[in-house]
Amino acid sequence: MQKRLDYVLNHALLVHFLLFGMYLVGMWLVHLALVSLVTFFHLQLDHNFSVIDNWLNDQSWGIAFVTKLVTLVISLNFINIWSTSRKPFVDLIKGHHSGPVKSVWAYCLFILLFMLVYGRPIFNPLGHISVLNVITSIIGTSLFFASDVFVVLTLEDLYPVQKRERAQQVILYSVMSFLFAKNVFAYTDGFDFSYLILSLILFFLLFYKDAGWRTVIPFLLFVAIPHFSLFGKDPFWKGEYSPFIYKWPIESLHYLIILIVLFCYTYYKKKNVNSK
């Protein structure tokens, strides 16, 4: 793939920052347009702002889904202007064919076990359990994380970052995703510090041994979907429709500890391999 933008910006990480930033700004603009359109039609029907607010809350995952999907399609087409491939997205999927390494599955299972053992999920006695809403939350959560992953990997294919800059790369993506999610979807407080930590875990696993886009599969199955959609931590609906809730709340500090443990274990394992 030809990297024409490198002629102007001779630093891959800077290119990532600018293009990933454009993707997130695009997400903000698409979301703003959708909310403005919805508000306009509600006002035409003489609905007051409390009705509009309730509608936005009920349809928040639908709005987020459309926002992410539209932004993803536009962003990939824009970024791939600099690609010489005729089918860059297909090539991206085929190019990362190896799938996540066993360690990634083990890490994600470890996080799930931590949630089960420490959080002790119980049946949600106050929730209005809805299979449709749970499925909606699962699909929305999957797209929310997967869209970021595909944009990042597209950038990585076009403008590969040196491995010694992986730490900066992981922090950059995670912080940017967190700040934009928190401010774009300002009508919810669900994108808290724990979302930042989960983003750090995702991008850390994504670049662990260059496992590829399939890293998102164990992360979604064992971490994001259980935490958000099943255990009452949905960023929009909280535990309103979740079948379970944590008996012992898992705070951001706990996920930070998990991230540190994963990092230390990976570093220790890598050091042992190099010493042999």
Rank of each mutant, 00 (worst) to 15 (best):
L9H: 04
Q2M: 09
W61M: 11
L113I: 08
I93G: 05
L132H: 06
L24M: 12
G21K: 03
K182Q: 14
S194I: 03
L92V: 04
H47Q: 14
F17S: 15
W61G: 11
Q44A: 15
T67Y: 02
F219W: 03
S75H: 00
R4Q: 13
Y118T: 11
K271H: 10
G239H: 06
A186D: 09
I129L: 12
K276V: 13
V216Y: 04
M176Q: 10
G95R: 02
V223L: 03
G99A: 05
V25I: 12
W213A: 14
S174Y: 01
V134G: 05
T141N: 15
N80A: 09
F114M: 14
A167R: 11
Y23Q: 06
L221Q: 01
L202M: 12
A186H: 06
V30M: 06
R214Y: 09
S142C: 11
I93W: 06
L256G: 15
Y208K: 10
F20E: 05
I111V: 09
Y118K: 13
A64S: 15
V8R: 06
W82T: 14
P226D: 04
T39P: 00
V152Y: 03
L56A: 13
G95L: 02
H47V: 04
G62N: 03
V152I: 03
S275T: 09
V90W: 09
S252M: 06
K182H: 10
Y246S: 11
Y159A: 12
N183I: 03
S36T: 05
W213Y: 13
R214S: 10
P160M: 05
F219E: 05
N80K: 00
L206N: 04
V152D: 01
Y187P: 00
I93L: 15
N272M: 11
Y246A: 12
D210Y: 05
F236P: 00
L196N: 02
V170W: 03
G26P: 00
W61H: 12
Y173V: 10
K276F: 07
S98P: 00
F145E: 08
W105K: 08
V51M: 13
I171T: 08
Q59G: 06
S85F: 01
V161L: 01
S275K: 13
L256D: 09
G99M: 01
N274F: 03
L113W: 01
T215Y: 00
V15C: 08
L45P: 01
I81F: 13
F180Y: 11
F17I: 11
V170H: 02
H128L: 13
